[in-house]
Design a protein around this nucleic acid. Structure first.
Lengths: 339, 339
DNA sequence: GGTAAAATCGAAAACGTTTTCGATGAAAAA
DNA sequence: TTTTTCATCGAAAACGTTTTCGATTTTACC
């Protein structure tokens, strides 16, 4: 009960391995007769090429690697969805690894993927990532490489992004236009570029509308969790009871903020308005429904894969490839929490 | 700028490829001197074995395949988390595919994984799955194979499960003990074994407590969505306004039920008590907080991988392997919706 | 019939590794 | 010195495919 090989087909048909291989790949220098015979026998023996051998010979595995901080996360799982769907369409499979927001793991996983000789790598950096030697290694080995969402500006690879500054600006502007005068910000960790950019967007919006920036109104998440949202909400209302609006790094944390406000009976949006980021599914099912910034996660995955595919193709054709940076559009979703 | 190979190391050191290979794998018939020389040079040239060649030679890829109905799903993404974490621990990578609840896709993806020659396959069946020829194919090719959660009873592979009947029984019993007299059930689609089992558990609990079963109180989801939850809730209260408890196939749908009750100001738990299934994260952040059945999803992933690994190992050692069925424990989480 | 062109085929190398088994030389025992 | 043992090494096959390039056969043409 062994696997069928070209050799077996060749021997039973009394022809050479070469011809069998060519017949299966529809080469023009095989007569219709032999071609048919090979096809028939291959089919009846359920021949499938040994992909290990194909990989070795062609030096590609039709497999790409994906490293993300967390799988159990609405945004990232949506991106995964986009990537594996698009990859499958184009005949690629996806190996997924999770850095758990740890730089150490991320490094190890990049090494793993390089050793596996995947055809390309897509990554969203962990919050801890402030080194990029491992990313440079990818470039240096000339492995097609795309970053998305949480990226390193210093690495000249293709990127798929949203304009975090602009999106954050719009979110804070939304609060201002709804009448907020004193707006706090619960920001993400210090390293990630998108946390930085959203913070900048927050400041710019305040500036634009002549609201003084007060660094005491900025709270910095470490782990970006529901619990941190509750904690900072509590801290915030005790320190600055007159805050009337808060812009939160992401919906998960914002939901924590709402949970605390619910507990202590602070009225949202009457007393404080809240806006989140990323449009997690849960934001539309909680009370009050959370206003947020919609981020095209699925599309982000699709775009990231297609960029990678372009680079893989040009590498195969030994063409040069210019890294591209694609910015996708966000939009404000107004719900009850800022009504 | 080519990849380093054994051949290169051998030539620069003036020894044979064989010896280089043995040195790197710490064979005993290589002198300490040569061993060290090889190790040093390999390190300075950043040698990593070509995994394509290793795969071909050893007939294994240290890669497993995972097929699940949906990635963007709290339960499944938690299982993924468990599987890839445990797999990485043991030196395996995981290719993830998504059947989108489609039998057709599922079949195709099994074929994809078989062609890729993964070392093993873990699967949770799609709702549409009522055929199992593709699963039999896996067994017939003697690929290590584990099913979890949504399984086919007819396929004698290893399985990781919860006792859906028992868990559902306990959930409904919980409603009864809280005083519910007329309990509806929003069930899952007709095919999946776990939807069937939860339905049976529901009936058994009613029977045990002498509550007559009424098939009109059973609503059958097609897509298991938030929207279906809202829809069936509406249908239910209009047809049977005296229902005072409802057991829902999964939290996502239950959250839809709560959303409708919220809209039309039906008091939960005063008028109707609601219990879900699976303990999705969002269940603890909505109002009222949803009671549910906790299902050890991460642990399920870990267990599934370890079962697969056992089978992979015994196959390598040409030992026989008896498929195992492991049942993990669930527990009722009491929250506001059944208080 | 002879030659040129076209159609069809296959030998062999290559991809890079692992492993078996025999060869060689040196050290130990006789 | 001869024989035996042990340590160290390498030739070569194997894994299964793809592809180049030359060889052979068939067909077409004069």
């Amino acid at each position: 009960m062994k696997e069928t090989t070209l050799k077996q087909i060749a021997e039973t048909l009394g022809i050479s391995i070469t011809t069998v291989s060519k017949a299966l790949k529809n080469y023009s220098d095989v007569s219709p007769k032999t071609k048919q015979a090979v096809l028939d026998l291959a089919h009846s023996l359920q021949y499938t090429p040994n992909s290990f051998a194909v990989n070795l010979r062609t030096k590609e595995s039709k497999t790409i690697g994906l490293i993300i901080p967390e799988v159990v996360h609405h945004f990232f799982s949506s991106v995964i969805n986009g990537i594996i769907a698009e990859a499958e369409q184009h005949g690629y499979l996806v190996i997924i690894l999770q850095s758990n927001e740890s730089l150490e793991l991320e490094k190890k996983q990049v090494a793993l993927l390089l050793n596996k000789r995947v055809d390309g790598i897509i990554i969203s950096l962990s919050n801890e990532s402030n080194h990029d030697a491992h990313l440079k290694e990818i470039l240096q080995r000339e492995i097609p490489f795309v970053q998305f969402d949480k990226i390193s500006k210093l690495i000249p690879s293709s990127k798929v992004l949203i304009n975090d500054q602009k999106a954050a600006f719009e979110a804070v502007e939304h609060l201002i236009l709804k009448g907020c005068k004193k707006i706090a910000h619960i920001r993400g960790p210090v390293n990630p570029q998108n946390a930085i950019d959203r913070f900048i967007g927050y400041k710019k919006a305040l500036e634009q509308y002549n609201i003084p920036f007060d660094s005491r109104l900025v709270y910095t998440c470490k782990n970006v969790t529901f619990e941190e949202g509750k904690m900072f909400a509590k801290e915030m209302v005790s320190q600055h009871p007159d805050v009337d609006g808060v812009f939160v790094i992401t919906d998960l944390v914002a939901v924590g903020v709402l949970a605390y406000f619910n507990e202590v009976q602070i009225q949202v949006p009457q007393q404080i308005k809240v806006i989140g980021f990323s449009n997690w599914f849960m934001s539309q099912v909680i009370t009050p429904k959370l206003s947020t910034v919609d981020q095209p996660s699925y599309e982000m995955g699709v775009t990231a894969f297609n960029l990678l595919l372009q680079e893989i193709q040009s590498k195969k054709d030994s063409q040069s490839f210019e890294p591209q940076v694609i910015e996708l559009n966000t939009k404000i979703i107004e719900r009850e929490s800022t009504l």
